[in-house]
Nucleic acid binder design. Structure first.
Lengths: 237, 237
DNA sequence: AAGTGGTCTAGACCACATC
DNA sequence: ATGTGGTCTAGACCACTTT
């Protein structure tokens, strides 16, 4: 870790240290409960000031990766359970886990220049890929999926048959999702969504918005509508 | 801001600076979009090193309270009406983080023998404690909280003043929450909830059910109703 | 050119846990 | 007593935006 960032603005030292620790956790060299080298040790290892190590470890604690105890040491935090809010991405798997039959109907699979979608994917220009799919459980519609996809990350998206494999399954199969952002709303559906979900007028939807990252790119931005009477989200922390 | 914390471990300087900025946002001296004094100015104002001011402002940015632009300045972030599902935070903190004023009205605080509540707390017999509270953000109702509490875990629950401290804050202060289970629904509120949340007829609620464990005991079981037009849940993974 | 935030250093004192 | 993390200082160089 050179004192001066060399060229082209490489990562700052504290960020490099964070990634170094994260990498060790990912490849199993550090397991939950393990002691992480002390600040003093890392100062020697990386040749930086203690403040720099301190910032790296403090931020990892704020992110829930590490636990720090004054007078004792720094430890790898226990693994955090993922909630169903994440697993929702595999609606087909969830349906299968309930012993039910999943079917899908592809309403649209196309290129799009929707500026909102381009912005949601954090791209400068379009076109982007777009799909609209209704997922059924035992023939009953349970999810209306409106998805935009980054063509740079998934160039073959439009060539897939999404009645066989869900878009999300296709994507996690090709690229590891590294980060996700979600929002959950209760919302009245528009007529289009309401009809495709066979909902009664006045019934609300549980709307889940998700954006997922692959590396530094937004890979996909999706809106998932679910009829409130037939669906809810659940999980543990 | 004395250089040396005097006695009894007062708040560290960076934390005092954070609260000072948050207070100014709360009382309206700083509004979304406003320029926050620069690091150099705060160094003079508080008599601390620039690193200390830098940390305070950096953490407020990480919390979504401020936006910082190199070469330009530090700005108050636009209001965010969202909440975090995966973390266990309380509504008062979230409102404070948005720079807003939280108030609460206690509708009920009592013992209850509701068999459903006793079962939800996984107890054999009642009574259990029960509270119903409406939380307001800037005077506008944002959450209707219907909570049952395990008397064995929080025997002094009924003696608290929940206009001063939220039940959640009271409980996490006394006992560490070790596990939580949640369910999220989109639901039409009943007339009682709808009126207390000042909602229009037909507007759906985002309903969050949560049970939390302290050790092997269910500590609390709570239903949180939020008006869909004014509230959503959000988070990252 | 001046001002801003982003990062970093090489020290320091402290509270606390462990040995 | 030793080592740990928590905080803080008084400088510094840099990239960037604004004037």
């Amino acid at each position: 870790m050179q004192n001066k960032p060399a060229r082209g603005t490489p990562l700052p030292a504290y960020e490099q240290i964070k990634r170094h620790v994260l990498a060790q956790i990912e490849n199993g060299l550090l397991k939950p409960g393990d002691v992480v080298p002390s600040e003093t040790e890392m100062v020697k290892e990386f040749g930086v000031a203690r403040m720099t190590v301190s910032r790296a470890l403090r931020e990892l604690m704020a992110e829930g990766v590490l636990n720090r105890v004054r007078g004792s040491g720094t430890y790898v935090a226990p693994r955090q359970y993922e909630s169903t809010v994440l697993q929702i991405r595999n609606i087909a798997d969830e349906i299968a886990a309930r012993g039910h039959r999943h079917t899908a109907r592809v309403l649209a699979l196309e290129s799009s220049d929707d500026p909102n979608a381009v912005a949601a994917l954090e791209l400068d220009t379009g076109p982007v890929f777009h799909s609209r799919i209704v997922h059924n459980e035992e023939g009953e519609p349970i999810q209306y999926e409106d998805r935009y996809v980054n063509p740079e990350v998934f160039p073959e998206y439009l060539a897939q048959d999404f009645t066989v494999e869900t878009p999300n399954n296709y994507m996690v199969r090709l690229a590891p999702i590294q980060r996700a952002e979600f929002r959950i709303y209760a919302q009245k559906p528009d007529a289009h969504v309401r009809q495709h979900l066979a909902m009664e007028i006045g019934e609300p939807c549980l709307l889940l918005l998700r954006r997922t990252w692959v590396g530094k790119d937004v890979a996909t931005s999706v809106r998932l509508w679910h009829p409130a009477s037939r669906f809810h989200l659940a999980g543990t922390v």
